[in-house]
């Protein structure tokens, strides 16, 4: 079987479809670490962690922040079901910055009734948003 030349990337969240495009390369934050996908990749099903996802189309690179969900990889297509996802250019940097500060403060002074795990996840999400926005800025 000839190798496919492109990947049909589809990224959807419960609220909307975010990406629907033909791309050349994708990098996905999987549960056990980041992995890259090129056309012709072995079928793979992975859980996502909180992280930055990017895809390349020609010479252009697009960044997104994603959190929780699943990625299904087929030789010629990638389907990503994310709980949360935002394009880098949609990320509100000042809000993410504020969220990061808040989460850090909360984690710095442990109170008994505080939900540590939630604060940790909030911190992670804000960091990833900042990272995605940052990287997209460098590119352009």
């Amino acid at each position: 079987m000839a190798l496919p030349t492109h990947l049909a990337l589809e990224l959807v969240t419960p609220d909307r479809a975010i990406v629907h495009d033909r791309v050349d390369e994708v990098e996905i934050p999987g549960a056990d670490g980041y992995f890259g996908v090129l056309p012709g990749h072995t079928p793979l099903l992975a859980m996502l962690q909180v992280g930055v996802l990017w895809y390349r189309k020609g010479r252009e690179k697009f960044h997104l922040s994603v959190a929780f969900g699943f990625a299904e990889v087929q030789p010629d297509r990638v389907t990503i079901l994310a709980q949360l996802a935002e394009r880098a250019e949609e990320i509100d940097v000042s809000r993410a910055e504020a969220a990061r500060k808040r989460a850090e403060e909360r984690m710095a002074r442990p109170v008994i009734d505080m939900d540590f795990e939630r604060a940790r996840i909030a911190l992670l999400k804000s960091l990833v948003r900042l990272q995605a926005a940052e990287r997209a800025r460098i590119r352009t």
């Binding site: 999987g30 549960a31 056990d32 072995t42 079928p43 793979l44 992975a46 859980m47 699943f70 030789p75």
Partner: peptide, 28 residues
């Protein structure tokens, strides 16, 4: 899909993914 015969790589184990996926499906 054409690759139906080929087995998937799973990350983490399929049972664990399945366990995560089903409640999500109900939510959705």
């Amino acid at each position: 899909a054409p690759s139906a015969g080929v087995d998937y790589l799973y990350e983490p184990a399929p049972e664990q993914i399945f366990k995560e996926l089903l409640p999500r499906h109900v939510e959705v």
